[in-house]
């Protein structure tokens, strides 16, 4: 049997019989000795209080608990296949109040100011990133003119190579398709470093007349880099005739939907 720490003397390590007392697995003499100790030990009283809900939860599980089962094989893939077919997201709570901007996937954080109204687009949750005030340069260099690649073919509408805009190792490609829900953009990129703290990658569709002083672009979506390869799927109602260029920037994750950050990837049309 345990040699008990003296009464009323603080001890750093938990008493060896706290668990046994809670679970009812002590011998009678051990339980009595522990109760004597507990009477004067605040540390053990606190520990008992913290763990006190566990015996009942375990007993409930024993007497009335669900059976165990394993998830059916293939359910994860079936679920994610189903997900891939359901693209548009519901507007976020913060997006529902104001509205404009054609993309379904917008910045994580809402626009603090009301963005410029758009008359086109299936849905117009706010957010979008039609920058009222762009703070930094926004030139997409090697542009992919998506509209000229349009076709009635159900095959990908356009395949775009993404090249680093800053000489870094990042590269990737994006495939644009038309679906009933709008345009889908599947982008795969490698060599992107995780965004610095407080920053987030954003993919844009950019109009011809987009300039530093008068940005004219919509955000397709934002993404987080967690590994060597990023795959993102977006749906957007953006009009490719109006926003024919694609690019990726890194933006402050500060709720400002305007384009502010440096360009990371440029879209370049892939030879067909």
């Amino acid at each position: 049997m345990a040699e008990l720490p003296p009464r009323r003397e603080a001890h750093r390590e938990p008493h060896p019989d706290v668990a046994g007392y809670l679970l009812g697995t002590l011998q009678d003499d051990e339980a009595r000795a522990f109760l004597d100790h507990l009477d004067g030990c605040e540390a053990c009283q606190r520990e008992l209080d913290e763990l006190a809900d566990l015996p009942q939860l375990l007993t409930d599980l024993l007497t009335d608990g669900p059976n165990t089962w394993s998830l059916p094989a293939g359910l994860e893939e079936r679920t994610f296949d189903a997900l891939a077919a359901v693209a548009p997201r519901e507007p976020t709570r913060s997006e529902t109040g104001h509205a404009s901007g054609p993309s379904n996937i917008t910045a994580i954080t809402p626009a603090p100011e009301r963005p410029r109204e758009r008359t086109r687009g299936r849905r117009r949750p706010a957010g979008l990133l039609i920058a009222a005030a762009a703070a930094a340069a926004v030139v997409i260099a090697g542009v992919a003119t998506l509209s000229v690649l349009r076709t009635s073919n159900p095959a990908p509408l356009a395949s775009i190579r993404l090249v680093s805009a800053d000489g870094g190792p990042a590269e990737g490609n994006a495939t644009v398709r038309t679906t009933d829900a709008g345009l889908t953009i599947d982008m795969t990129a490698t060599g992107l470093a995780p965004a610095p703290a407080g920053k987030i990658y954003t993919c844009w569709l950019v109009a011809d007349d987009d300039t530093l002083a008068h940005p004219d672009r919509v955000s397709v979506g934002s993404f987080v880099v967690r590994g060597p390869t990023v795959h993102v799927h977006w749906t957007t109602a953006a009009d490719l005739d109006r926003f024919p260029h694609l690019g990726v920037t890194v933006e402050p994750d500060n709720g400002n939907p305007s384009h502010q950050g440096p360009k990371i990837l440029n879209g370049v049309p892939r030879p067909r």
Partner: peptide, 26 residues
């Protein structure tokens, strides 16, 4: 919420799908 349906959503699947399935079975 930011649009990543790959790793984060799969991780949430790992954490929750078993319980959601159990809820359905029960």
């Amino acid at each position: 919420a930011a649009g990543d349906r790959d790793v984060p959503l799969r991780e949430l699947y790992q954490r929750y799908a078993g319980r959601v399935y159990g809820l359905g079975v029960q």
